[in-house]
Design a protein around this nucleic acid. Sequence first.
DNA 1: CGACACCTTGAAGAGGTTCAAGAAATGTGG
DNA 2: CCACATTTCTTGAACCTCTTCAAGGTGTCG
Lengths: 223, 223
Amino acid sequence: MPVGLSAQELTQLDTLIAGRKKVPKGSPLYKAGDAFHALYAVRTGFFKTEVNTQDGRGQVTGFQMMGEIMGLDGIVQDQHSCDAVALEDSEVCVMPYARIEELSMRFEPLRRHLHKVMSREIVRDQGVMLLLGIMRAEERVAAFLLNLVQRMHVRGFSQSEVVLRMTRREIGSYLGMKLETVSRVFSRFAEDGVVDVNQRHIVIRDPAALKAMVTSQSAHCTT
Amino acid sequence: MPVGLSAQELTQLDTLIAGRKKVPKGSPLYKAGDAFHALYAVRTGFFKTEVNTQDGRGQVTGFQMMGEIMGLDGIVQDQHSCDAVALEDSEVCVMPYARIEELSMRFEPLRRHLHKVMSREIVRDQGVMLLLGIMRAEERVAAFLLNLVQRMHVRGFSQSEVVLRMTRREIGSYLGMKLETVSRVFSRFAEDGVVDVNQRHIVIRDPAALKAMVTSQSAHCTT
DNA sequence: CGACACCTTGAAGAGGTTCAAGAAATGTGG
DNA sequence: CCACATTTCTTGAACCTCTTCAAGGTGTCG
């Protein structure tokens, strides 16, 4: 992550990662209430984070892909406040929080990076609130797709093509709507020639049309 | 904030606060796009934070009262991503971020505190997403009122009485609904004897009834 | 191959929005 | 201190978007 360090410093930084952990599809990396020990960086695969209520309802709060950090929610109460579940066979880097704390004392770049990661998450959450608060169904789906391909593109994948790792229900949960509505919006987009939809395989034919729906692209963060 | 420090350390910590700033009612403490210099702690008064879209729509992302921190959104991009506006004549403590960074290197308690503050904000945002994503109008208003009086109570105010500092429109924006709906829900609560509503003066007559509406009290953070 | 989860589509229904009007409170200037 | 303008709040009625319920189709995995 950080740059501009001596070889010795880099060696020390390596100790930040205690190891890797495989998480099979459908398994939780952690669950709400679990003791908080570490932050996790997605190495391979795809995750969702989800908060659940007593009465069984739940809300997907985010999808995480390669390079993204999970577990920040656990710091404040020394326990996690949401579930992190792998949507496909995945692997994460385990970064024990005690070690992060210790190293962040000595290495300014790491400390600054950590603060930015947390701040980025806060800004991302603002974007989700905007989405849930004022957008209608089509805008939400358009924003979701654009955000997804943009993040994939940064990682070297196609800008116009994406395979969804999550179900319609999970998309709907994230966007604050029912799975049927998600499906209908996809169908409408397909009719209008904006996207091609083949189950979970999406091709964006008219990105401009999608962007036009999301006039409200403000503090919409990429993470 | 932190405890268990020597007198000398405490003196240094005092330098964290560069000064105070008065913010008149209706004025912004900062606006989206402003350069990021400092974090702010509310000393007196009441604020809202708000993200705005190009097309003029906006979403209130939070209300801040005494002791709560604003500005964390600015860290990641060195500029703020939302507006912070005083809802009444207010005063904040200005904590230059450069100094926070510097002191947090030396003082573990401060560093830990900062990380918890940021993590708490992330958990709070999860609660708002839950609210916006799955709750219906009455649940949202009930959750809002309970959260508000709970925070006031922690600060030594009544557990059953509160004067709203924000308009119906601002409540609605925060809760993802229209001001008319907020008004109607208040009226319905009043009819049912759950609360007394006199303009912005609210008396909670049946807190249990409110809590029962919010079966979904999970990771609902207090901040 | 069969069971199961996932997706699509239709029709009816509900919750919240929109539009509109009036009342109450707040602020301003004479 | 009062009159007036402005903002805020309440309430009603029509409307609309999304949800709910239901059925059938498609894909997937043991």
